[in-house]
């Protein structure tokens, strides 16, 4: 693990764009954790006297929305929810994918064939449809959205791990472990997984922005997280539905700007990580 951190840090320090993005993301995450706690506004209280205040008036840095809610806190709260969902979903996808691919790879044969064909089916079905159908069943809250998103997009990780497992399990050191009496789970955990941690990490890093992407799209369509809870997508959706863009453009454009910057940074970071960790093989 230490080796990885060193390698990644070294690789990033050479890539100026990626470095800037890493710093930006760190700052944004820290701010999203701290600001909603310390601010004396909160993200849900209405204030009928101060509707649609433009930015930097009345102590509201980003202005207020159609209910007089402070946008500064709402946006940071949205960043917090979007990030929490993105990271959590990507982690669960990684766990599912690793377990699934590992089992398929280590058993091989018919089990592998059936499992991978099912993964192909999951891959070919559009995510949005799967997520909508699951949230229809479970309701629109954070948990159901996380659950539904986690059940999609794990197939890439599964494929990577399965491919690596198939190669690695024929290698001499794994054969030796087998002869010495190691059981399958032990071989998987001790010998095979550490050897595919690079691609798994890259996949995790790529899945975070795509989970944020999926969640914000869902929320933007009004079928993800429901107000007053707010992810960035919900904020844009509310602005789009209730606000005249000609007069109160900031209500829409501030959350849009945040989504755009976060997505770009995460994507550049993912690309850079891929370059760094792929150069090993």
């Amino acid at each position: 693990m230490l080796y990885f951190i060193k390698k990644v840090a070294l690789g990033l320090s050479k890539d100026r764009a990626a470095l800037v993005c890493a710093i930006f993301i760190t700052v944004v995450v820290l701010a999203a954790i701290v600001i909603p706690v310390v601010s004396h506004y909160d993200y849900y209280s209405h204030d009928a006297d101060s509707k649609f205040l433009p930015p930097f008036t009345g102590g509201h840095w980003f202005g207020t929305d159609e209910f007089g809610r402070d946008l500064f806190v709402r946006v940071w709260h949205g960043v917090r929810i979007s990030f929490a969902i993105g990271v959590l979903v990507a982690f669960i996808q990684m766990l599912i994918g690793t377990l699934y691919g590992g089992v398929a790879g280590i058993f091989g044969g018919l089990v592998d064939e059936v499992m991978m064909r099912f993964a192909d089916v999951m891959y070919s079905v559009p995510n949005l449809v799967v997520v909508v159908l699951i949230t229809l069943l479970m309701g629109n809250n954070e948990l159901s959205v996380i659950f539904a998103l986690s059940l999609t997009d794990w197939t890439t990780a599964a494929r990577v791990v399965r491919g690596q497992t198939l190669v690695l399990k024929e290698m001499e050191f794994v054969q030796a472990a087998k002869v010495l009496g190691a059981k399958r789970p032990q071989i998987m955990l001790k010998h095979i997984l550490p050897n595919c941690s690079g691609p798994i990490l890259v996949n995790l890093m790529i899945n975070i922005p795509s989970a944020i992407f999926a969640e914000s799209t869902l929320s933007f369509l009004g079928i993800g997280i429901k107000p007053p809870a707010a992810s960035l997508g919900t904020l844009v959706n509310e602005g789009f539905k209730y606000v005249n863009i000609n007069y109160y453009s900031w209500v829409i454009f501030i959350p849009l700007l945040f989504i755009a910057l976060i997505m770009i940074s995460l994507n550049i970071l993912g690309d850079a990580l891929q370059k760094v960790l792929d150069s090993k093989s």
Binding site: F213, G233, I245, L256, A260
Partner: peptide
């Protein structure tokens, strides 16, 4: 290309709607 790939569809859609259509 980086911009085009990473921007979610609704960001692009709303920006274009505002900039071009309005």
């Amino acid at each position: 290309t980086m911009l085009a790939i990473s921007m979610p569809g609704f960001v692009m859609g709303m920006l274009l709607q505002y900039l071009v259509s309005f």
